[in-house]
């Protein structure tokens, strides 16, 4: 698994297309299903998938399941944790959950790239 993370609007998907260029192999966390996650080549906006299924207990086993069922996946997610603590408790829960899951996904990934201004910095290469 390859993870591409970073702030919003940094060119993460464009960067990740070096591995999966074919648009039909991309899923979008904003609307994809669990099955899509397990079968697609790459997923964009993973943080929105976490938001949609925030209360779903299946999220808690997702990192290990993804590594097992879709080990070649390229996963793109916004990093959410770099702001002031949100006022709404649901927003706090979302950014906390995204951080916890992405930390475990990073542990499962062979490579983690962090994109800033369209430039990818390799922060993990197993």
């Amino acid at each position: 698994m390859i993870m591409v993370i970073g702030g919003a609007f940094q060119g993460k998907k464009t960067y990740a297309k070096q591995w999966i260029a074919d648009e039909s192999r991309w899923a979008d966390g904003a609307d994809c299903t669990w099955q899509d996650l397990y079968s697609c080549g790459a997923v964009d906006h993973f943080h929105l998938f976490v938001k949609r299924f925030l209360e779903d207990p299946k999220l808690d086993t997702l990192p290990e399941k993804l590594a097992e069922k879709n080990p070649g996946l390229v996963l793109v997610s916004d990093e959410l944790g770099y702001g002031v603590v949100p006022v709404e408790s649901k927003d706090r829960a979302w950014r906390e959950k995204t951080g916890r899951i992405c930390t475990r996904l990073a542990a499962q990934s062979e490579e983690v790239h962090r994109v800033i201004c369209g430039v990818g910095v390799v922060i993990k290469h197993a």
């Binding site: 990093e79 959410l80 770099y82 603590v85 906390e96 995204t98 951080g99 930390t103």
Partner: peptide, 8 residues
């Protein structure tokens, strides 16, 4: 240092 939920 790090963001929220980063494992710091």
């Amino acid at each position: 240092t790090g963001g929220s939920g980063s494992g710091k």
